[in-house]
Amino acid sequence: METTTERESHYKNLEKQTVREILENINNEDKTVPLAVEKSLPQIEALASITAEKMKAGGRLFYIGAGTSGRLGVVDASECPPTFGVPFDMVVGLIAGGDGAIRKAVEFAEDDTVQAWADLQAYDVNNKDVVVGIAASGTTPYVIGGLKTANEHNIVTGCIVCNSGSPVAAAAQYPVEVVTGPEFLTGSTRMKAGTAQKLVLNMLSTSVMIQLGRVKGNRMVDMQLSNNKLVNRGTHMVMEATGLSEEDAAGLLKQYGSVRSAVDHYFKK
Rank of each mutant, 00 (worst) to 15 (best):
G73K: 06
G73E: 02
G73A: 01
G73R: 04
G73Y: 13
V74Q: 01
V74P: 00
V74N: 02
V75D: 01
V75E: 00
D76F: 15
D76C: 15
D76H: 14
D76T: 11
A77Y: 08
A77E: 07
A77L: 11
A77T: 02
S78D: 07
S78T: 11
S78I: 11
E79I: 12
C80V: 12
C80Q: 02
C80A: 06
C80D: 02
P81H: 00
P81I: 06
P82A: 06
P82V: 09
T83F: 12
T83G: 07
F84H: 00
F84N: 00
F84Y: 09
G85E: 03
V86L: 05
P87G: 12
P87N: 07
P87I: 10
P87E: 08
F88K: 04
F88G: 12
F88L: 13
F88A: 15
D89W: 08
D89F: 12
D89Q: 06
M90Q: 05
M90P: 00
V91P: 04
V91G: 01
V92A: 09
G93L: 07
G93W: 09
G93E: 05
G93F: 11
L94V: 03
L94A: 02
I95Q: 00
A96P: 02
A96G: 06
G97A: 07
G97L: 13
G97F: 12
G98T: 01
G98I: 10
G98K: 09
G98F: 14
D99I: 15
D99A: 15
D99Y: 15
D99H: 12
G100A: 14
A101V: 09
A101F: 09
A101M: 08
I102S: 03
I102V: 11
I102H: 03
I102A: 01
I102W: 00
I102P: 05
R103A: 15
R103M: 15
K104L: 13
K104R: 13
K104F: 13
K104I: 14
A105E: 09
A105W: 13
E107K: 11
E107D: 01
E107F: 12
F108T: 10
F108E: 14
A109K: 12
A109H: 08
A109D: 05
E110A: 00
D111R: 12
D111I: 06
D111Y: 14
D111F: 11
D111E: 14
D112L: 12
D112V: 06
D112A: 04
T113Y: 14
T113I: 13
V114R: 15
V114L: 10
V114H: 14
V114G: 01
Q115R: 15
A116N: 01
A116Y: 02
A116W: 10
A116S: 08
W117C: 01
W117V: 04
W117A: 04
W117K: 02
W117I: 04
A118D: 10
D119F: 13
D119L: 15
D119H: 05
L120A: 08
L120E: 00
L120Q: 04
Q121Y: 06
Q121V: 14
A122Q: 08
Y123F: 11
Y123K: 00
Y123I: 07
D124I: 10
D124M: 11
D124K: 04
V125I: 08
V125Q: 02
N126T: 12
N126R: 03
N126F: 08
N126L: 02
N127I: 10
N127E: 13
K128A: 04
K128N: 09
K128S: 08
K128W: 13
D129I: 09
D129K: 06
